[in-house]
Deep mutational scan, measured.
Amino acid sequence: DHIPWITAVLPTVIICVMVFCLILWKW
C-alpha cells in the first residue's frame, strides 16, 4: 500500500508558507 506522503508533507509546506508570508509582511 502507498504511503500518502502528501499528508505528511502538506503541514510542513503550510507552516513554511505561513512563516514566509509573515516575514515578508513584517518587512
Rank of each mutant, 00 (worst) to 15 (best):
H2L: 06
V9H: 15
M18K: 02
H2Y: 05
L24V: 09
I6D: 02
V13C: 01
W25Y: 10
I3A: 14
V17P: 15
L10H: 03
W5G: 02
T12I: 05
C16E: 00
L10D: 07
P4T: 03
C21F: 03
T7E: 02
W27T: 14
C16W: 04
L22T: 00
T12G: 05
W5P: 10
V9E: 03
V19L: 08
H2W: 15
W25C: 02
L24Q: 07
L24M: 14
W25K: 12
V19I: 01
I3N: 02
A8R: 08
M18P: 07
K26H: 15
F20Q: 13
V19C: 03
T12P: 08
W27F: 09
C21L: 03
A8Y: 04
W27P: 05
I23N: 09
P4L: 04
H2A: 06
M18Q: 15
I14K: 05
W25E: 08
T12F: 07
I6G: 05
P4V: 09
T12H: 12
C16F: 07
C16M: 02
I14Y: 13
V19H: 15
W5K: 15
V9Q: 02
H2T: 10
A8K: 05
L24D: 14
M18I: 05
I6L: 00
P11E: 06
V9G: 11
L10C: 15
L22M: 01
T12Q: 00
A8N: 00
P4A: 05
V13S: 00
W5F: 08
P4K: 01
A8P: 08
I15A: 12
W25V: 15
T7C: 04
L22A: 00
L10T: 11
L24E: 07
M18N: 09
L22Q: 07
L10A: 15
P4F: 10
V19T: 05
L22V: 00
K26T: 13
C16S: 04
W5D: 15
I3L: 03
V13N: 07
W25G: 10
D1I: 00
L10E: 13
C16I: 13
V13Y: 03
I23K: 12
I15T: 12
M18V: 02
V19S: 05
K26L: 13
T7V: 13
T12A: 07
I23R: 08
I15H: 08
P11H: 07
A8D: 03
V17K: 13
D1S: 02
M18F: 04
C16P: 11
V13E: 07
P4I: 04
L24H: 14
I15F: 14
I23E: 06
F20N: 06
A8E: 11
P4R: 09
V9R: 01
I6R: 01
L24Y: 07
V9L: 08
D1A: 01
I14G: 09
I15M: 06
T12L: 13
W25T: 09
V19R: 03
P11G: 13
V17R: 08
L24R: 12
W27V: 13
H2V: 08
P4Y: 05
I15E: 02
I23F: 04
V19N: 01
L22S: 01
I15Q: 01
W5R: 05
P11V: 11
M18E: 12
V19E: 04
T12N: 01
A8T: 00
P11L: 01
I3Y: 14
I23L: 08
D1M: 01
A8H: 00
P4M: 15
V9I: 03
L10I: 05
W5V: 13
P11Y: 10
I23V: 03
V19G: 06
C21I: 13
W25I: 08
M18L: 07
W5T: 09
V13W: 09
I3C: 12
V13M: 05
M18T: 06
V17S: 10
C21W: 02
A8G: 02
C16K: 04
C16Y: 03
W5C: 11
I14T: 12
V17T: 12
C21Y: 10
L22E: 01
I23Y: 14
F20A: 15
P4N: 12
L22F: 13
W27C: 05
I6F: 02
W25A: 13
A8S: 01
V19W: 05
C16N: 15
L22R: 02
T7R: 00
C21K: 12
I3Q: 07
T7K: 06
T12R: 06
I3T: 12
W5I: 04
P4D: 13
A8Q: 00
C16R: 08
I6C: 01
I23A: 06
D1E: 03
I14L: 10
V13T: 00
V17W: 08
W27R: 12
V17D: 08
F20C: 12
W5M: 09
W27Q: 14
C21R: 12
I6H: 10
I14H: 15
D1P: 00
I3K: 09
I23Q: 15
V19Q: 03
L22D: 11
V17Q: 07
V19K: 10
V17M: 06
F20P: 11
H2N: 03
I6T: 01
W5S: 03
V13H: 06
W27K: 11
D1Y: 01
M18H: 03
W27M: 03
I6S: 07
W27L: 07
V17N: 13
I3P: 07
V13I: 02
W27I: 10
W5A: 09
L22H: 08
C16V: 15
K26G: 04
W27G: 12
L24K: 13
V13L: 07
T12V: 01
V19D: 03
W27Y: 12
W25Q: 12
L22C: 15
V13K: 02
V17G: 11
W25P: 09
P11N: 13
I23G: 14
W27A: 08
W25M: 14
K26S: 11
L24S: 12
V13Q: 07
L24N: 14
C21G: 14
I6E: 02
D1R: 00
C16L: 05
C21Q: 09
I3H: 14
V13D: 02
K26E: 05
L22P: 09
H2I: 15
L10R: 09
L10P: 06
P11S: 10
I15L: 12
W5N: 15
V13F: 04
I3V: 08
P4S: 06
C16H: 14
F20V: 11
D1V: 00
P11R: 05
V9A: 09
T7P: 01
I6Q: 13
D1L: 00
K26C: 11
I6P: 11
P4H: 05
I3M: 11
I14M: 08
M18A: 10
V17F: 07
L10G: 04
K26I: 08
L10Q: 15
I14D: 11
W27H: 08
H2G: 15
L10F: 03
M18D: 02
D1C: 01
I14A: 08
F20G: 15
T7Y: 09
M18R: 05
H2R: 04
P11I: 07
L10S: 11
I15S: 11
I3E: 14
V19F: 07
L22N: 01
I14E: 12
V17E: 09
I23S: 09
H2P: 10
C21D: 15
F20K: 14
T12C: 00
C21E: 11
T7G: 14
V19P: 08
A8V: 13
L22K: 12
K26R: 01
H2Q: 04
W27D: 15
P11K: 09
I14N: 03
T12Y: 14
F20R: 09
W25H: 07
F20D: 10
T12S: 04
I14R: 06
P11W: 15
T12K: 06
V13R: 06
W25S: 07
I14C: 10
C16Q: 00
H2F: 10
C21T: 11
C16T: 01
I23C: 15
I23M: 05
H2D: 02
C21S: 06
K26P: 14
L24P: 06
V19M: 06
D1F: 02
I6A: 02
V17C: 14
W25N: 12
K26Y: 13
A8F: 14
W5H: 04
C16D: 10
H2E: 02
K26A: 09
C21M: 09
K26D: 12
M18S: 02
V9S: 10
I3G: 12
I15N: 10
T7N: 03
T7D: 04
H2S: 05
D1K: 01
I15V: 11
I3F: 03
H2K: 04
W27N: 09
K26N: 05
V19Y: 14
I15Y: 00
W25R: 09
L22Y: 06
C16A: 07
V9D: 01
P11T: 08
I15G: 12
H2C: 13
I6N: 00
D1T: 02
L24G: 15
W27E: 14
L24A: 13
I23H: 05
I23T: 10
T7A: 08
F20L: 05
I14P: 13
W5L: 14
F20Y: 02
C21N: 06
I14V: 04
M18C: 11
D1Q: 00
I15K: 03
P4Q: 03
T7S: 03
T7F: 14
V19A: 13
W25L: 08
V9T: 13
W25D: 13
V13P: 04
M18Y: 00
T12M: 11
F20T: 04
I3S: 06
K26Q: 12
L24T: 04
V13G: 01
V9P: 06
F20S: 05
W25F: 08
I14Q: 13
P4C: 14
V9C: 10
I6V: 04
P4W: 04
D1G: 02
T7H: 06
C21H: 10
V17A: 11
L24I: 10
V13A: 00
I23P: 11
C21A: 10
V9N: 02
L22G: 06
L10V: 05
W27S: 09
C21P: 11
V17I: 11
F20I: 06
P11F: 07
C21V: 09
V17Y: 14
A8I: 10
W5E: 03
L24F: 12
W5Q: 13
L22I: 00
L10Y: 00
D1W: 00
D1N: 01
D1H: 02
P4G: 04
I15R: 04
I14F: 07
M18G: 10
T7I: 08
C16G: 07
T7Q: 00
W5Y: 15
I3R: 11
T7L: 14
I6K: 03
I14S: 10
A8L: 11
I6M: 01
P11Q: 04
P11A: 08
V17L: 06
